[in-house]
């Protein structure tokens, strides 16, 4: 054995021969590589890291006490509460709708399927301001069914229901879009197997379909929640900016900023930035750990 080991080629390779190319053929020379990396990092620093740091620097500009004071006032409390309420209604709604739509599209053939897929995408292609305006035109005082509702003391626009509706609209596609390709890829064989084994439709859904999509579902709910809490445009149109009543966190930030109350504005903004960071971390962990179970084929986000 040892004699064989001695005969193995290795360190005694003649130095005149060129070293074997270990780098991939699709790579570039050193200078180009560093330049591209520098551009990317510079861009990130300027447009992402710097603003993020600024938010926290401004928020703490007058110390801890001033930072905390931004959250103790009643308007801030109600803004946080309203944001949580809107998310707490919109996210479960989209969860149920998204799973139902993805199920219908991935597992069944029916007429108008392509139209449904296109409609689900609509909120992504429409400006949020337009989404908000749609609700004003329908439910507003001069709107289609607004007067009828107001007569019966049902206030939608400039009230919590309007904010919830607008939030639901803009977050509509998140869950369905994520699950449709995932469920299409998984096909129907496992469900069919469960049915032939005597499982009811609901039992098969609970024990087979849901576990198969759980990570993709969690991932999409996370993104949906981040959007629901951060939505500004659509909510701004329907809210009416009534302090303490119809202000969500993003709207509260705007009001404080317009009043030149920078510390409070950035303090509240830091809360949203914190939410974004937490979302990013959980999202990355999910992608790293369960990438195959989240998206069909490859990563999509």
């Amino acid at each position: 054995m040892s004699s064989l080991a001695v005969r193995a080629p290795g360190p005694s390779r003649p130095t005149s021969q060129p070293a074997p190319r270990t780098a991939s053929v699709v790579t570039e020379g050193g200078f180009v590589r560093w330049l591209l990396i520098a551009v990317a990092i510079g861009f990130l620093a300027l447009f992402l890291v710097l603003p993020l740091v600024t938010v926290f620097v401004q928020a703490f500009a007058k110390g801890w006490a001033a930072y905390l004071a931004a959250f103790t006032e009643a308007d801030a409390h109600s803004a946080i509460r309203l944001t949580l309420i809107a998310a707490a209604i919109a996210v479960p709604f989209n969860l149920v709708f998204g799973v139902a739509a993805a199920w219908a599209i991935a597992k069944f053939e029916f007429k108008g399927k392509n139209l449904l897929v296109t409609l689900i995408d609509l909120p992504f292609s429409v400006s949020p301001v337009v989404s908000g305006l749609i609700y004003v035109l329908v439910f507003g005082a001069q709107g289609l069914i607004g007067p009828w509702l107001i007569e019966r003391d049902v206030q939608i626009i400039f009230a919590i229901p309007g904010i919830v509706l607008a939030t639901i609209f803009v977050t509509f596609p998140f869950v369905a879009r994520q699950l449709i390709p995932l469920m299409q890829e998984q096909g129907t064989a496992e469900e069919e197997a469960a049915l032939t084994l005597g499982a009811s439709g609901w039992h098969a859904f609970r024990t087979v379909t849901l576990p198969n999509i759980r990570w993709g579902l969690l991932y999409s709910v996370l993104l949906c929640n981040a959007r629901a809490m951060g939505e500004f445009g659509a909510v701004s149109v329907v809210s009416g900016h009534i302090r303490g009543l119809t202000n969500t966190l993003p709207l509260h930030v705007e009001i404080l900023y317009n009043e030149y109350n920078f510390v409070a504005a950035f303090a509240v903004a830091s809360l949203l930035a914190g939410l974004a960071l937490v979302t990013l971390v959980i999202k990355s962990v999910l992608e790293w750990r369960y990438s195959a179970d989240i998206a069909a084929g490859a990563r999509r986000h």
Partner: peptide
């Protein structure tokens, strides 16, 4: 009460 075996097994992965 049929037992069905699929070409691609269709075992429950989880």
């Amino acid at each position: 009460a049929v037992g069905f075996v699929f070409q691609h097994y269709a075992l429950f992965k989880h």
